[in-house]
Design a protein around this nucleic acid. Structure first.
Length: 850
RNA sequence: GCCGAGGUGGCGGAAUUGGUAGACGCGUGGGUCUCAAAAACCCAUGAGGCUUAAAUCUCGUGCGGGUUCGAUUCCCGCCCUCGGCACCA
């Protein structure tokens, strides 16, 4: 028995005093770099949780392993320190976010050191530090100068609880991703980053990176590229046209109506003289997101009284207005093919039932919608389509479509697109679902947008010499629906002073007040996702005062080799960071296209009840308590042993104890001093297992398969212990050290303690070299192999015997097969039968067919 | 509906260029030690049949087929669970 906590504190101190892991960032000596990155952490008041421990430990194992393999490892740490939780806490308690954030960081730091994460603390950073956000602002200005940061008036997502706008990516099923409130639409002038500028490269760039396929698919899904065609139809009895976007022009012979969104220009024009349409537009504009959801898929609409002409059939297609068509997608107008689109069919049913009810209503008489089948599916059904189940969407062959008849729908799509383009009726187009990134937030605790407005309301970026454009401190951050920065006197005075110096010429020219009166700063702050979109660049040179990072440092370390981050960031941070990287590359600052070459997601650690941990469910495991009872090594090894890194796994306290006992056994076996060494003969079996372990760990660690490495360490311990008992002897110090080295990345404290003990060096001496800066052991294939091999023998696919052969004869097919057939236990299966087939897979299996 | 991931003992999981399914750990049962308990250690542990026992057989990786000497792994058709997107034309 020994005191785990005591040795852990001892080594934590020694590592820190010697700055063991902090010589990494100097670019001049880098030969074989490895940049390991852990997802930027938000320093929440509740401290480190067991999920953090899992992914940090995984990266730490890699960091320690690769250092032992001789790589130059860069493993930095920092804090995503701006954000809503600290501000909301401040609103409740009156304690400034700066204070709570600082306290939280101190707690995190202590906890991270306690679990032995070998971060390079020399480059630690926090996004709320002015020397950091100075460069967040600088990037904003570069974007502004290139027209990629711009202001736009429009409908935005507004969270009434958090009193701020949100990006599309932060709205999940109509709710705020942070506080789960129902999001409402508001018309506001806001700042956007033009991420759509890079939409095509955000797709193609995914081919360069080693990311989980599912993650790539999800990003592609979010970007939502679609190719189709815009078809322009003449509107009868006018000189106007309506342009519709469709991906299925093959069905155009069956197009019998047009629907436009309430926001469509033509709808607005019609509404001037048509009260039905005007009323409909009015009602639609008042609908909230919630109303729409409750309404479900029930169709509504109003007839405009106009008709579009389908050039293919010369049929008059009634033009309707309906809110199932979205103003923001495609052209805001859709051509309806009720026979081959479920929504169109539902709309036709709505229209026809309505006009049935008002048969004598002249206005609606000609607005009925015809359903024409133009595709026949695999069932061969060519009957009239009267039920929604008959609507054929995905596959089939064309009918009733003139020159398309008989073609597969996909061929027909290409042919009709060619035709429409030739005739000047349409144009192939590509659409994307991705929208520009709304970055304004009406909140206090964020990076100020470095813009001042002149008395005419024109924006002027703050000059670089005046950055950081600091966040004022004399602010009342209680939410009022307006930006809290408006309450700062200092901020406005600062702005006046600034413009009177910087814009003196303009002020004189315009005859404005020379004191700067009339100018205002931008009161909104930036979305915190802006802060985290480039932090991995700053890490490599985080104290630089002249540039966001020096070119030599960037060249030495980037791109990131492995990024460990939760799957919840796929459409937010991971997309935004890629966008920033491509922008800064185009500006000439970066030498690479993609920031994160390899990425893996950690799974979630669930409570013992198999549910997501949460305070309200009372199933939260506190890592501090586990460390207190069993030590940090146990916590680390247990979390790595739970299962595959990417899987969700429930906590099991009994299994923690199992790992604890394993480590206790390790300690007592390695520290055993009274036993003599095995003889050469006696140690064969243990040595064989030891070299198999080295091979296994060397193979598994780079693949992040830590659970199987640990399982094999346990197997090794079992063999060693059995053999030790059998002979009352044990392994040599030399062999013990090999095992300690394999253990070191997983249980760094215990390994260091045992290393000191076995080598006889002491940590007080100046030239002490710990296990973590030694060289990873080489495995010897000869020692890993045993002299005899057991080969299973199958008869008709069932294992009936085991054949023991020497390692040399195992490669001789003829000898092995003859020996196998001669096995006495196979007599009853083979006697009197002819062996039809003999198969031998060298060293693996013998298969006989009778 | 579309896209993606997955389904293996009582539990977490291992094994996939097709080659002994269930490594390792937990749990459970039995035992040693003890006045007793805990700890520690030892043995057993997928299900079922036959048997005093040994031996041995059958079934078994979500379901149904197929390819193969041999399938958790490959192919075809389904079912279920989880994650993402969704009135996106």
């Amino acid at each position: 028995m020994f005191n785990q906590n005591q040795i852990e504190e001892k080594w934590q101190q020694i590592w820190e005093n010697n700055q063991l892991f902090q010589q990494s960032a100097d670019s001049t000596s880098v030969k074989d770099k490895l940049y390991l990155l852990f997802a930027f952490a938000y320093p929440s008041g509740s401290g480190l949780h067991v999920g953090h421990v899992e992914s940090k430990t995984a990266l730490d194992i890699l960091a320690r392993y690769y250092r032992m393999k001789g790589k130059d490892v860069f493993f930095p740490v920092g804090w995503d320190a701006f954000g809503l939780p600290a501000e909301n806490y401040a609103i409740k308690t009156g304690i400034h976010p700066k204070v709570t954030t600082k306290d939280a960081i101190i707690t995190f730091r202590r906890q991270i050191k306690r679990i032995g994460i070998s971060y390079d603390w020399a480059n630690e950073l926090a996004t709320n530090h002015p020397e950091y956000y100075k460069w967040t602002q600088w990037i904003f200005i570069q974007m502004f100068n290139k027209g990629l940061a711009y202001q736009k008036n429009g409908m935005v997502n507004w969270c009434p609880q958090d009193q701020t706008v949100l990006a599309n990516e932060q709205v999940v099923e109509g709710r705020c991703e942070r506080c789960d409130s129902q999001v409402v639409q508001k018309e506001l002038k806001q700042w956007y980053y033009k991420i759509t500028q890079y939409q095509e490269e955000l797709i193609t760039g995914l081919d360069q990176v080693d990311w989980p396929e599912a993650t790539k698919a999800q990003q592609l899904n979010w970007i939502g590229k679609k190719t189709g065609i815009e078809i322009t139809y003449k509107i009868a009895d006018t000189d106007k046209t309506v342009t519709c976007f469709t991906t299925r022009p093959d069905t155009n012979f069956g197009a019998t109506f047009v629907v436009i969104a309430p926001e469509h220009q033509f709808a607005k024009e019609v509404a001037k003289n048509n009260t039905t349409v005007a009323d409909y537009l009015d009602a639609a504009s008042k609908k909230t997101e919630l109303d729409r959801q409750q309404e479900g898929k029930t169709k509504t609409g109003a007839f405009t009284g106009f008709y579009a002409i389908n050039q293919l059939t010369n049929k008059k297609m009634p033009i309707w207005v309906s809110d199932f068509v979205l103003g923001g997608f495609g052209t805001g107008a859709v051509v309806g093919v009720p026979a081959h689109d479920v929504r169109d069919f539902e709309f036709s049913q709505f229209v026809n039932s309505q006009s049935d009810n008002k048969a004598d209503d002249a206005e609606n008489a000609d607005s009925r919608i015809e359903v024409i089948r133009v595709v026949v599916g695999s069932d061969g059904d060519t009957s009239e389509i009267t039920k929604v189940e008959q609507v054929q969407e995905e596959t089939g062959t064309m009918i009733n479509s003139d020159f398309l008849n008989g073609l597969d729908i996909h061929e027909a799509t290409q042919k009709i697109m060619d035709y429409l383009e030739e005739q000047g009726m349409g144009k192939r187009v590509t659409t994307y679902r991705l929208r520009d990134w709304l970055i304004s937030r009406q909140r206090y605790w964020g990076t100020p947008i470095p813009i001042v407005y002149d008395p005419e309301g024109n924006p002027h970026p703050v000059k670089q010499e005046y950055l950081p454009w600091e966040l004022p401190t004399d602010v009342d951050f209680k939410p009022t629906g307006e930006s809290p920065l408006k309450s700062s006197k200092e901020f406005i005075e600062r702005t006046h002073k600034y413009v009177s110096q910087v814009h003196a010429d303009l002020i004189a020219e315009k005859g404005w007040d020379s004191s700067g009166e009339g100018w205002t700063p931008e009161f909104d702050t930036m979305d915190t996702f802006v802060d985290s979109s480039w932090y991995f660049l700053r890490y490599v040179d985080s104290r630089n005062k002249d540039v966001f990072a020096d070119v030599s440092q960037l060249k030495a370390w980037l791109p990131v080799d492995l990024y460990m981050i939760g799957p919840e960031h796929i459409v937010l941070h991971l997309l935004y960071s890629r966008f920033f990287t491509k922008f800064l590359r185009d500006e000439g600052y970066l030498h690479f296209d993609e920031p994160f070459m390899k990425m893996r997601h950690q799974g979630m650690i669930l409570g013992p009840d198999n549910r997501k941990m949460s305070k309200s469910k009372g199933n939260v495991i506190n890592p501090d308590e586990i460390i207190e009872k069993f030590g940090a090594d146990t916590l680390r090894v247990y979390e790595m042993f739970m299962g595959p890194l990417e899987a969700d796994k429930p906590w099991d306290i009994r299994a923690v104890i199992g790992v604890y006992k394993f480590l206790q056994r390790v300690y007592s076996m390695v520290s055993e001093k009274d036993l003599a060494e095995f003889s050469q003969q006696e140690k064969t079996k243990t040595e064989q297992k030891l070299h198999q372990l080295i091979a296994k760990a060397t193979d598994d660690i780079p693949k992040l398969k830590f659970n199987t490495s640990i399982a094999f360490m346990m197997e090794f311990m079992n063999v060693w212990q059995d053999e030790s008992k059998k002979y009352s002897k044990t392994l040599s110090s030399e062999d013990k050290i090999k095992f300690i080295k394999v253990l070191a990345p997983f249980a760094p404290f215990m390994a260091e303690e045992l290393f000191e003990m076995v080598t006889g060096q002491t940590s007080d001496s100046d030239d002490y070299n710990g296990v973590h800066i030694t060289v990873w052991p080489e495995f010897d294939p000869n020692k890993a192999q045993s002299d005899t091999v057991m080969i299973p023998v199958q008869i008709n696919g069932k294992v009936r015997a085991q054949l023991s052969v020497s390692a040399e004869t195992a490669s001789d097919q003829q000898v092995v097969l003859n020996q196998a057939i001669a096995l006495p236990e196979l007599k009853k299966y083979l006697e009197g039968k002819e062996i039809k087939k003999k198969i031998y897979v060298a060293g693996k299996i013998i298969s006989l067919v009778v």
